[in-house]
């Protein structure tokens, strides 16, 4: 009885939690609930409607979702695959000094998203960018107009920049969780290195890989500043569209914007949900 009371807490104990809860309610939860409500309300008549969601079928909005999902999915996959190999290379690096340095670099660069990063990519890969010029001068190769940093392919390069170090940071603890004894016992039971990775190493890493994939996906899907700086209106993405509606640059019914916001919340919620579940699984395994 006493322990149960301690766990759930007395009413007075919950009072200590109230300020934080109120803050979250005021600046996060209630506004989102209003947003959800607004997405179902006709603006002039104040009646319930599905119209905003039906409006999402317009090519512009469909396109935004397709582009956003394609961009996030692609950069997440690239990030997971490259990040895992880079992570393993870092993990197995013999010098501890170098290892720490690379981890620190990942820590810093994964936060280099947004405007300065986007501009850095313009500096190297813009029309007159350093690499663009290098290719032109030394290889007579015209990067433009086939490639442009202000396009989908350019965005991929810029997004992978912050996805890669994030994946490296996520996967390193997973590699550390692979016990040396697993490999040794697999060996003593007759398995070679390939069999070990196929039957034990990769399956044990799998929850972390899935967690990485979903987190990277959400990370890219919600990104705004990088895309805004680079492509502006040349490419429609969900976050950019919502941004235009807030800024009032697009004179359209706010309702569609809200429906879009809810749509993106669902996509993000799903990926974060899967991420959480996968992380829990990974933790459970690392315990045994």
């Amino acid at each position: 009885m006493a322990s149960k009371q301690k766990k759930t807490g007395r009413t007075s104990d919950w009072l200590g939690f109230a300020p934080f809860l109120l803050f979250c309610l005021a600046f996060e939860i209630i506004p989102i609930i209003f947003l959800l409500r607004g997405s179902f309300i006709e603006k002039t008549t104040h009646l319930f409607t599905f119209q905003h969601y039906l409006d999402l079928q317009r090519p512009l909005y469909i396109n935004s979702f397709v582009n956003s999902i394609k961009l996030s999915g692609l950069t997440a996959i690239i990030g997971v695959v490259l990040g895992t190999f880079i992570g393993y290379a870092v993990y197995r690096w013999p010098s501890e000094r170098v290892r720490e340095l690379l981890i620190t670099l990942s820590d810093v660069t994964t936060n280099f998203a947004g405007v300065p990063l986007a501009f850095a990519f313009v500096v190297i890969l813009g029309m007159n960018g350093v690499i663009t010029q290098f290719l032109l001068q030394y290889f007579q190769y015209h990067l433009y107009p086939k490639f442009s940093i202000y396009s989908f392919s350019g965005l991929i390069l810029a997004y992978v920049y912050f996805q890669l170090p994030l994946m490296v940071l996520l996967i390193l603890p997973a590699f550390a969780g692979l016990k040396k004894e697993w490999q040794e016992s697999a060996q003593s039971l007759g398995a070679g290195p390939f069999k070990y990775w196929w039957r034990i190493g990769i399956p044990v890493l799998m929850p972390s890989l899935i967690a990485g994939l979903t987190l990277l996906f959400a990370n890219a899907f919600g990104a705004y500043a990088t895309a805004y700086t680079l492509v502006e209106s040349k490419l429609s993405l969900v976050t950019l569209q919502i941004g235009y509606m807030i800024a009032g640059e697009v004179r359209q019914d706010q309702g569609v914007g809200m429906a879009m916001a809810i749509g993106s919340l669902i996509i993000m919620g799903l990926s974060i949900g899967v991420y959480q579940a996968a992380t829990l699984r990974a933790r459970r395994w690392s315990k045994s």
Binding site: E181, S185, P203, V204, S288
Partner: peptide, 15 residues
């Protein structure tokens, strides 16, 4: 063809 039992058991957690 030598069996080994480890201090930490080393059971494969995914199986």
């Amino acid at each position: 063809d030598i069996g080994m039992v480890f201090q930490s058991y080393a059971l494969f957690p995914n199986m």
